[in-house]
Simulated assay, not measured.
Amino acid sequence: MTVTSFLELLRRYPDAGITIRLPDGNDVPAHFHITEVGHLVKSFIDCGGKRHHAGSCLLQVWVADDTDHRLTAGKLLGIFERTDGLLPSNELPVEIEHEAPVLTQMPVTGCDATPEELVFHTEFKKADCLAKELCIPDFSLPGLPGQSCTPGSGCC
């Protein structure tokens, strides 16, 4: 889910409560706080030597002892309105950072929306090789026949 679609939901349902559904089907306790809205940037090189840049909007979720606290969509929208200039684009994906049980970053993948509640769904990130055509024996891409990893070839 991009920042644009996330904000559209917050604007459409300002009085709605917010639920964050974790990948295991459990919900973050309802009295959570959003303690940070951040722009996360990752620059890296893959095992095939290609450089990449990735970015996201990271919402840090914190659960405190004030169990009477509830965050509404309008309140979260107000937090976002203070981020003017922080995010380079509203097309960044939104991720949740939560201790589940260790600090974990999870993409927001969708939302079940009603005027009463916005249930944001998350997934665990998955590792992947970005240079499969160079690294996996007998793996080839259309247009790159014969590109595979052989012993001693120097690929990853």
Rank of each mutant, 00 (worst) to 15 (best):
L71E: 11
H121I: 05
C135P: 01
A100Q: 10
G48Q: 07
S56L: 07
L87H: 09
Q105I: 03
L77H: 09
G85F: 05
D138A: 13
T122E: 09
R82H: 15
G85N: 02
D66E: 05
Q105T: 08
E36Y: 09
K42A: 12
I96E: 02
P137V: 02
G143L: 08
D68Y: 06
V102P: 01
V119G: 00
Q105L: 04
S56V: 03
P101H: 08
R12L: 07
M106W: 06
E99K: 12
L87R: 04
Q60I: 05
L118H: 01
R51P: 01
P137H: 05
V61F: 08
R11V: 07
P29R: 03
A100R: 07
L87D: 04
P101G: 09
K75L: 01
G38P: 00
W62Q: 12
H39S: 07
R11M: 07
A30T: 04
V41S: 14
P29S: 05
T72G: 02
E8M: 09
G49A: 03
L118E: 01
A127I: 10
V94K: 15
P93K: 12
V28Y: 06
K126P: 02
F120R: 03
G38K: 00
P115Y: 08
V41A: 13
Y13A: 01
G78D: 13
I96H: 04
S140A: 06
A30L: 04
A127H: 08
V41P: 06
R70H: 03
I45F: 01
T104D: 14
I34L: 11
G49C: 05
L22E: 13
V41L: 15
E36P: 02
C135M: 10
F139Y: 14
P142A: 09
D112K: 09
D128R: 15
S5C: 15
G143R: 12
G143E: 12
P137F: 03
T109G: 12
T114S: 15
H39V: 02
T83M: 14
E133C: 10
A113W: 13
E123G: 10
K50V: 05
G38Y: 00
P88K: 06
L40H: 13
P14E: 10
E99G: 08
S56G: 08
L87A: 03
L9Q: 15
A16G: 00
K125H: 12
G85T: 02
T104Q: 10
H31D: 00
G78I: 05
S5K: 15
P93I: 00
